[in-house]
Design a protein around this nucleic acid. Sequence first.
DNA 1: TCCCGGTACCGAAACGTTTCGGTACTTGTC
DNA 2: GACAAGTACCGAAACGTTTCGGTACCGGGA
Lengths: 351, 351
Amino acid sequence: MPPRVTIVDVAARAGVAISSVSSALNNRPGVSDDTRKRILEAAEDLGFVPSLRGRSLSAKRAFAVGLVVHRDPYVLESDPFFGSFIGGIETVLDPRGYALILQMGSERVETLDRYRSLAANRRVDGVFLNELGVDDPRIPLVQELGLPAVGVNAGPAFPLPAVRQDHGRGIAELVDHFVTLGHRRFAHVSGPHEFIHGHQRRRAWGDALAAAGMEPGVVVEGDFTYEGGVSAADRVFGGGSREARPVHPTAVFCSNDLSAIGFMARASELGFRVPEDVSVAGYDGIELGTYVRPALTTIRTNPRLIGREAARMLLDAIDACPEGTRRIPDVDVDPAHLLVRSSTGPAPLQD
Amino acid sequence: MPPRVTIVDVAARAGVAISSVSSALNNRPGVSDDTRKRILEAAEDLGFVPSLRGRSLSAKRAFAVGLVVHRDPYVLESDPFFGSFIGGIETVLDPRGYALILQMGSERVETLDRYRSLAANRRVDGVFLNELGVDDPRIPLVQELGLPAVGVNAGPAFPLPAVRQDHGRGIAELVDHFVTLGHRRFAHVSGPHEFIHGHQRRRAWGDALAAAGMEPGVVVEGDFTYEGGVSAADRVFGGGSREARPVHPTAVFCSNDLSAIGFMARASELGFRVPEDVSVAGYDGIELGTYVRPALTTIRTNPRLIGREAARMLLDAIDACPEGTRRIPDVDVDPAHLLVRSSTGPAPLQD
DNA sequence: TCCCGGTACCGAAACGTTTCGGTACTTGTC
DNA sequence: GACAAGTACCGAAACGTTTCGGTACCGGGA
């Protein structure tokens, strides 16, 4: 553990004051080309890397941003969103010298405390607000704390900068796909109502059906899990086998892929063939959907892109923060589109 | 954004020097009970929270540790390990005032650079070495950098502190289970050979079979993915249907659950019923395995526990670091055990 | 009475940057 | 040739802690 080489060493080697070294390395004016070159050489020779700690203290910045997820193991484990989302975040953070601090909170309340302590000791300069709920308590919290934040897939009235990927378009495409295939009886397995994105997908589904002149069909509440999809299938089909239910929904939209896969599995067990008897579609576009049989028709989102834009916005918001609260414009990434695979097909001949 | 309350404010309010405040708040001697109480009150009144930045600079510590994962979206997305592993890490880090910095590197080389820059600007005090490969280049790197590190599921000759969960025990239980059910022809879908854990599971499988007096059977290399399990099934069954292969392995051990699930799916397509024609077992114990049909027999690991122990060790190693390189003893968490569900059953009557 | 050890407290340095005000020198203008 | 303006560079303060050496005071022993 050799003692770190500091700006003082560089200054000594170049024969200048440390303030000149700082100016030179940060491309500030007031240093002659000659001196600047000498300083850069000295820094290079010594392998100088500015100390993040020194910079942090002086700049009053942590050079880090925070992401808090629920501790529920199943979230990071099975939600495909986070892996790609974090990957997208990283592509922006790293080149700008920022790092991502990941925290987990088991309970909703504990999650709030995480944000609070992150802000209290100034460990981060800003945070992501993910998996927003309706009336999410984190919103007033970050406002009160004066902590820069961006919302991910926030609702329309969200009072902070946000990045969104439109649900409506892909869902309208799905409804169109279903109707074209002759489907007339629909069902939706929603996400939990307390989450904005579950809420929005459900509404977009209802709107698109209405726009197509269709009956709204049945809606059962799921929870974004495989198991939720399984029990949703039981509810949609009334727990009966295919023979017992000659008239049933023939086109089902599940609010995410995982629940759609669970739904398909249970439907098969009940004797409903997919897609011959019932068409099933999901939402997300996770890898697993390409492997199950039949391969899952879905609406493919782009979490990586969302992460990238969210990170870009957050860093902008942080930069803008001191000089007045300049408002960062919201970003809408390319909407999610329908991806037709094998789990959807023509409506069966019944009625 | 009210100006932060600092130790100076507390000192002023309590009418003492800042050094006394520091001593009082850190439970150091040299402060009378009377004064200490006054200081604590002042700190409380003002809502003082010590600045992490100031402490970092003074203590020459970042109060953060790093975890680098491959950017391959499928890793965080589908590998159940990380979610729980990180959860376990958090339970230790948080109470000790540490935070986790998560980085992603797409390539092996880039991953190395991440470690290097993490160390260069001293963003972290230590790192986890996960998904170790044979002759992993990160080992000499952290040694050269003098960066405290702990290995996760490292090999036996690993030169740094490590936490391990034994593979042998559960795999021996699985072999025993298979043999008791009358199986005599075996196959193994391995992980990539360049990863230590893939390597170890394969060897433990071979050893356990030998110990039971069985033929080693066929081994095909997989890649820990669902798709890898699918193509492994093709290779194990020679791509033929059940009728075309009257003699085939009847008991298959896949090196992780995801590939086992892929294997089962493809086996079904080829006409092999699970478990009537072929028994299949995985490794990990992911949630998905409880939902597929038949539910997957597996060997359940405990990533959360591994994360917890790894974090504990890393913090210990960091604390021990300055005062000589005191060696932290390795930790073996409770071994992984067999969890029998429905994908394994009696050997079919053939021969 | 003198000294000695111990305790409570203080002041200042140190950590490694950035930034700001100031000084010396150069150049241009009348 | 004096003065203003501009440039290159320097020194010191500031960021918020911890730590270390020092001072003042108090009690006890000779």
